[in-house]
């Protein structure tokens, strides 16, 4: 099994031809003739496995400039999913975040064998914590903090749950941090992020890869589950408040990518998840207190 970092050939040549890589349970064919993108991609994804030749490819992704006169006027980049372009082009410097967002789209619109939540998922002591939340609520900040404190991170964006809620499949990819959370993480953990892209449609974006991000797609059996709705708020005191099933149900399915598509199956999955878990709302501003609280929550 080869990782990207083991490949002998020049990275740019490899990506120009197309590279099959395993990301979580999916195999992706990624292609790009953008040198800068190839470099960033191969650096951040260096420890991901290159897929065998005859493996089934789930998604074909091509990050390249539009093939028309516009490329001479202003530099744009397209996200191309096997010939379809679901998004308008973005500026060249946004290529890497564009890939990440585009891959999210591919999974969210195709992987209907899972009950999918837009959520970060972390694990410690056999406890699975699911943080479903709208963008900007601080779920990535929270899960990154826990990850940097020894928790396993199964995913920063996707809870890929089996429909019977017996298992969850890790989909580890670089954590995406935005705006203030970049400084918060840099300050708290005294590290420097080098892939910051400024001024995207979502503000400043940085991606962080770490050894505690689970790359092996082997599912975790769900035994002890907590569904927690995080909210970062500058003035907030650290507070974890239990929710009733009824209070948690709607906010949870609002964060599902395919609750509607799954129909009755989606309702049953959501109901089972609520039945099998405890639910809380969580407000925080102090990172140390948050980490301590979660460590105590899962202490055996």
């Amino acid at each position: 099994m080869l990782d990207i970092v083991d490949l002998k050939k020049d990275k740019i040549t490899i990506l120009t031809r197309g590279l099959n890589i395993k990301i979580g349970p999916f195999t992706i064919n990624i292609k790009s003739s953008e040198a800068k993108f190839a470099e960033t991609f191969c650096l951040i994804y260096q420890n991901f496995t290159v897929a065998n030749k005859n493996e089934y490819i789930d998604f074909y992704v091509d990050i390249s400039r539009p093939n028309n006169i516009r490329r001479f006027i202003r530099s744009y980049i397209n996200f191309n999913n096997d010939g379809k372009k679901p998004f308008k082009p973005l500026a060249i410097n946004e290529a890497f975040p564009f890939f990440e967002w585009g891959l999210n789209w591919c999974v969210a619109t195709h992987a209907h064998h899972y009950f999918m939540l837009h959520a970060a998922v972390v694990e410690k002591n056999d406890y699975i914590l699911i943080f479903p939340a709208a963008p900007g609520s601080g779920k990535s900040t929270l899960s990154t903090c826990l990850m940097l404190n020894g928790w396993k991170l199964l995913s920063d964006e996707f809870a890929l749950l089996s429909k019977d809620i017996n298992a969850i499949t890790p989909f580890g990819r670089p954590v995406s941090l935005k705006n203030e959370s970049i400084q918060i993480i840099e300050r708290t953990f005294n590290l420097k992020m080098n892939s910051v892209v400024k001024g995207t449609s979502k503000g400043d974006v940085a991606h962080l890869m770490h050894q505690n991000i689970i790359k092996d797609p082997k599912p975790f059996i769900l035994k002890r589950i907590k569904v927690i709705f995080p909210k970062y708020n500058k003035e907030a005191k650290t507070s974890l408040i239990p929710l009733s099933s009824a209070e948690a149900f709607i906010p949870m399915v609002e964060q599902s990518f395919n609750y509607n598509q799954l129909g009755i199956e989606g309702f049953n999955s959501a109901k089972t998840l609520i039945d099998k878990s405890q639910q809380y709302s969580f407000e925080y501003s102090n990172i140390d207190e948050a980490i301590q609280l979660f460590n105590e929550l899962v202490a055996n």
Binding site: R70, R74, Y76, F87, K88, P135, E157, K202
Partner: peptide, 13 residues
């Protein structure tokens, strides 16, 4: 339209 700055579509987080 070529010369207009493109507004991006809604993207996933």
């Amino acid at each position: 339209d070529f010369f207009k700055k493109e507004e991006s579509d809604t993207l996933l987080p």
